[in-house]
C-alpha cells in the first residue's frame, strides 16, 4: 500500500503560479478560491536575508485533525495512498475541518461543501501525476510513494536537507520542502 507525499524543491521554485492555474483548470476551482498557492518567505537580518519561494497546499497529514473533528465522516483518509479527501455527499458544511486545519488549507466551496487539494487522485489512480506536478516549468514538485525507499521522493529526502510546515503542531505533514 503506497503512502503518497510531495517533495518541493524551494531552490527551483520561482513562484510562477503555473501550479495554481493548473489546479484551477484541472479541478474546476471557482474564481476567488485556491486549493494551492504560492508563499514567499523572507527572513534574516539585513543584509543577510534569506528568501524561500514555495508552493503550498493541503499537507495530507498523517495525524489529521480535520478528519477527527468531522462529525459525519465526510473528511476521511483514502484507503489507497493515505490521501486526505472530502466526500461532498456526506459533508454538511459545518466548517469544523476548516477551523481544525492549522495550515488553513481548506475552504468552503460556493456549493456548500468543504474543499481542498486531493493530490489529483482522479489522475493518480490512472497512473498520472497531479496536475501541478505535470505543469511545473522548473520541475520543482515531485510526487510519489514515501514508503518506497527507491522512489524519487524518498531518494530526495535522503540526499537533501528539508523542512515541513509547522512541525510543532504534531500533524506530521506529508509535504516536504527541500532547502
Amino acid at each position: 500500500m503506497p503512502r503518497f507525499g510531495m517533495v518541493i524543491d524551494t531552490k527551483k521554485c520561482v513562484g510562477c503560479q503555473d501550479c495554481v492555474l493548473a489546479c484551477k483548470t484541472e479541478n474546476n476551482i471557482p474564481e476567488g478560491y485556491n486549493r494551492d498557492w504560492i508563499v514567499t518567505e523572507v527572513h534574516g537580518k539585513f543584509p543577510d536575508l534569506h528568501m524561500e519561494i514555495r508552493t503550498e497546499r493541503c499537507n495530507h497529514c498523517t495525524n489529521t485533525p480535520c478528519v477527527s473533528v468531522c462529525p459525519t465522516g465526510a473528511s476521511h483518509i483514502h484507503e489507497w495512498g493515505g490521501i486526505v479527501l472530502v466526500d461532498k455527499d456526506l459533508c454538511i458544511g459545518c466548517k469544523a475541518c476548516v477551523e481544525a486545519c492549522p495550515y488553513d488549507a481548506r475552504y468552503i466551496h460556493p456549493d456548500g461543501y468543504a474543499d481542498k487539494c486531493t493530490f489529483c487522485i482522479h489522475r493518480v489512480e490512472k497512473g498520472l501525476q497531479p496536475a501541478c506536478v505535470e505543469v511545473c516549468p522548473t520541475h520543482c514538485i515531485y510526487f510519489g510513494d514515501l514508503d518506497d525507499p527507491n522512489s524519487e521522493v524518498s531518494q530526495l529526502l535522503k540526499s537533501r536537507k528539508w523542512h515541513v510546515l509547522l512541525p510543532e503542531t504534531g500533524n506530521e505533514p506529508n509535504i516536504f520542502y527541500l532547502i
Partner: peptide, 8 residues
C-alpha cells in the same frame, strides 16, 4: 525580520 507573502 520574517515576512510571509501569500497569493491565497
Amino acid at each position: 525580520l520574517i515576512e510571509l507573502t501569500t497569493t491565497r
